[in-house]
């Protein structure tokens, strides 16, 4: 238990340092809130346009689809705030040899890289996503119980772990490929799957994105928990697959790290 508290303390110190750095550029904070918000509005506009032509998609009504899209946005924004900024710096650290400074510190490198940065702007957008979820639930006349809300929170954490696993695996490619900035494009491209209703996918697509890469579960399972209540099977499947993905990604990172050769003299 002691190592856990030690890492938690380290994370809090890193967060405080990163927050101080972020708040030095307040105007930047507001600009990025607007930018991220515009992408969310874009997704909602898409839902609105499609539902002008149909009443239901794979059994999901318009407000249900908004719960799904907003849940996905919530997970994405929390991930963008806490973990993503550190991970995307890895290709640069490897290319410039600055990873040396991370490796010299007495803490697990994967932990230090993942938690070194913070972006406050996305947290504001995470709040907006919660508000959108609440409004959509009101439109559906659904008042979730406290256990449902707590379970929703737990599943959001599982969703974060899935995002983390995928991006960690993608940025770890940088140990093999010199300029791996495209992996970020890959991350955004692949995570479009998370916005799909699970029932829309069939065949190998559904099997692959449920069991191998559980992206169809990331936003679907938390959203379904709010909309339809507790469903033990899908929830257990989601928790199991996201843990497996995180373990594999961590192993991949370690294998890659063994290839690292400092770029400095």
């Amino acid at each position: 238990m002691r190592p856990f508290f030690h890492l938690l303390r380290l994370w809090l110190i890193q967060l405080r340092y990163a927050a101080t750095r972020e708040l030095a550029f307040r105007a930047n904070f507001f600009v990025w809130v607007i930018v991220e918000l515009s992408w969310f509005v874009l997704q909602l506009a898409f839902v609105d346009v499609v539902y002008q032509h149909v009443d239901s998609i794979a059994g999901w009504s318009r407000p249900q689809m908004i719960v799904l899209v907003a849940t996905n946005q919530l997970i994405q924004q929390i991930f963008t705030a806490f973990l993503m900024p550190g991970l995307v710096k890895l290709p640069e650290l490897v290319r410039d040899g600055k990873l040396d400074f991370v490796l010299l510190k007495p803490a697990p490198p994967q932990f230090l890289i993942s938690t070194s940065q913070l972006e406050i702007g996305p947290l504001a957008n995470a709040l907006i996503a919660i508000v959108v979820v609440v409004f959509a639930l009101q439109e559906l006349h659904i008042t979730p119980s406290l256990p449902s809300i707590l379970l929703y929170g737990l599943l959001i954490v599982a969703g974060l772990l899935t995002h983390y696993a995928l991006l960690l695996a993608l940025v770890s490619l940088t140990f093999w490929i010199v300029q791996a900035e495209s992996v970020l494009l890959g991350y955004y491209s692949i995570f479009q799957v998370a916005r799909l209703p699970r029932e829309a996918a069939t065949g190998w697509f559904r099997i692959f994105f449920t069991f191998a890469l559980p992206l169809l579960l990331v936003a679907n399972i938390p959203a379904a928990t709010l909309l339809h209540g507790f469903q033990i099977g899908p929830i257990l499947l989601f928790l199991l697959t996201c843990l497996t993905a995180a373990i594999f990604a961590s192993l991949f990172f370690r294998i890659g790290l063994r290839r690292y050769q400092s770029a400095s003299s």
Partner: peptide, 15 residues
Amino acid sequence: YRWNYLLRALFSAMP
């Protein structure tokens, strides 16, 4: 940086 381009192209088919 052809690997970078190849990755971009591969990922661009995802949408």
